[in-house]
Design a protein around this nucleic acid. Structure first.
Length: 516
RNA sequence: GGCGUCAUAGCCAAGUGGUAAGGCAAGGGUCUGCAAAACCCUGAUUCCCUGGUCCGAUUCCGGGUGACGCCUCCA
């Protein structure tokens, strides 16, 4: 066949097979890419640190949500039973401050923004977690953990504040790969209030006493609330029903101190490893700057949603590797919109071919193009390499793209390459599926595009909403004018509709329209 | 100061010890009444600079320059 699309694969797919064809992740703990081996065959226990709910989530919060949702979807696709837990931190200084500002309870604030966050997640096509625990619902377990650490000598109480004794944990720093002495010398320059009551500047708070007007719980150390680092220790293992979990994920800023402190608490308490794989996404910048309150450049998901379908945001987030800093900009979003549109246009065209197909069954030639047998079942793919050149011998049919997609995703979730595989498939569809194709062929190609897109959480088969009658009438009127060769009238109507944000396209299958 | 990351066409962005995926944008063409969409064609003699290893480096090692992250609440 020798078509162009078959020669347009990245170099990696044209060389020898890798040693490892299995799913691999970069593990912050070991600073290397490792094959993923779950504790229990076929099951994944995964925890992702969720947002503190004191405001609408911003696009930085959205990155781990989208990235790890994609990881989850891919593992589900691979056949894993994924138990996915992600918390909402619903007690925190920021929430309390916000509540005081508005003169309402902290609970009211957190409930409100949990609902808003869930709405944003749904709009980004992020699947609801298996469980979304709340910190405030787990206080007794947190107290139990802190008590256990105190009993074992890893925690100490100073006037109602309980600290973790980092000096006693020989492994402290193993995740962030920090040298404790360096950390301590760094801390000497910082003037942290209340520092003097700590045994060591690196000790962190497990329980803090209440201040007037704050929510509180009773504890062996008096009224107060738990420190931030304790909640995830409890919620992850409780809802994943295991002392040790497979994957713990979150933004890279959480590596230190949050995740380091989680490891310290859990492993000092249980004596067992907390999580086997630690995954961290890089930050999202905006216009080449870090998002920060001082710069005032926070952009909420809700804001982006006003201007773009949030599927565009999702496509954009997945267009770079999750461990690379990504820059959010108007230009990038416009490019992402056009790119996603290319996939959607291809699917629409396939829908037309499906609707107007002249024949039903696959021809022999079509079966060859799909790589399926007489019954339409995919022929098992065996990729081998040429003994002389070492180059891979790749299938010359549609199976190529799914293979490419899986290779990319197996390789530490290379979603950029996975998207490229979908584009190669789109090209295949645009070239191979014509008005002479059988319905079965067009359907098979469409199914392939939709399935791969769905693994990335991308919705590409967009149902056309109906136009109002008046506009339908205009389109009919224009068709009549075109037939009568009154092109001036036809173009006038087209311009009129364009002004209303409706673009007309004349195809062999009739007039198609799109909203801008 | 400590630890770590990155530097690829106009833009975004993969990637590999053997000579550069994909998308957006741009130009030309086919199709179309004209458009739009789609398809085809064109584009980095080259992967920040500089030494080194190698038959061969963008890819490995050293040095340099530049950008950035964490070390403090933060996804």
């Amino acid at each position: 066949m020798g078509r162009r699309y078959e020669n347009s694969l990245p170099a990696i797919f044209q060389r020898g097979l890798g040693d490892n064809m299995a799913l691999r992740f970069y593990n912050t703990l070991t600073q290397s890419i490792q094959e993923f081996k779950p504790i229990t065959e076929g099951k994944v226990l995964m925890y992702v640190c969720g947002p503190t709910v004191y405001n609408l989530i911003h696009i930085g919060n959205a990155r781990p949500m989208i990235v790890f949702d994609t990881a989850r979807r891919y593992m589900m696709y691979k056949g894993y039973d994924v138990n996915y837990v992600s918390n909402f931190t619903d007690v925190d200084d920021k929430i309390i401050n916000k509540a005081n500002e508005e003169g309402v309870t902290a609970q009211e604030i957190s409930q409100r923004y949990i609902a808003e966050t869930k709405k944003d997640m749904a709009d980004m096509n992020v699947l609801p977690a298996t469980t979304h625990p709340l910190a405030t619902q787990e206080i007794p377990e947190m107290i139990a953990l802190i008590s256990d650490l105190e009993k074992k000598g890893f925690a100490y109480n100073v006037n109602g504040t309980v600290y973790f004794r980092t000096r006693k944990d020989p492994d402290y720093g193993k995740l962030s790969h920090k040298n404790l002495d360096d950390l301590r010398s760094g801390f000497r320059d910082l003037k942290v209030s209340g520092e003097d009551q700590k045994e060591d500047p690196l000790d962190f708070v497990l329980w803090k006493p209440m201040k007037p007007g704050e929510p509180y719980w009773d504890s062996p150390w008096g009224k107060g609330r738990p420190g931030w680092h304790t909640e995830c220790c409890v919620m992850s293992r409780k809802y994943l029903h295991s002392t040790t979990i497979d994957i713990h994920a979150g933004g890279e800023d959480l590596i230190f101190p949050h995740h380091e402190n989680e490891i310290a608490q859990v492993e000092c308490s249980t004596g067992q490893e907390f999580a086997h794989y630690w995954l961290h996404n890089a930050f999202l910048n905006i216009n080449n700057e870090k998002m920060s309150k001082s710069l005032g450049n926070f952009l909420t998901v809700r804001d982006v949603g006003k201007k773009y379908d949030l599927q565009v945001l999702r496509f954009f987030m997945l267009s770079a590797h999750y461990r690379r800093v990504l820059n959010f900009s108007e230009e990038s979003m416009e490019a992402a919109k056009a790119s996603l549109g290319r996939i959607r246009t291809a699917v629409r065209t396939l829908n037309d071919h499906i609707a107007h197909a002249k024949t039903e069954e696959l021809t022999e030639e079509e079966r060859a193009k799909l790589g399926v047998d007489e019954n339409g079942q995919p022929i098992a793919l065996e990729v081998t390499s040429d003994p002389e050149t070492g180059k891979l011998i790749l299938p010359q049919d549609m199976r190529l793209y799914r293979w490419q997609f899986e290779q990319a995703m197996d390789d530490d979730l290379n979603t950029a390459d996975a998207e490229a595989a979908i584009f190669n498939l789109v090209k295949f569809a645009n070239i191979e599926v014509t008005e002479n194709s059988s319905r079965a062929f067009a359907e098979a190609v469409k199914k392939e595009i939709c399935e791969l897109s769905d693994i990335l959480g991308l919705i590409v088969d967009v149902k056309e909403d109906s136009l109002d009658e008046e506009i339908e009438k205009k389109i009919e009127e224009r068709q009549a004018a075109r037939k009568a060769k009154d092109f001036a009238r036809a173009d006038a109507i087209r311009d009129e509709l364009l002004a209303k944000g409706i673009v007309l396209k004349d195809t062999r299958d009739g007039v198609r329209w799109e909203r801008v």
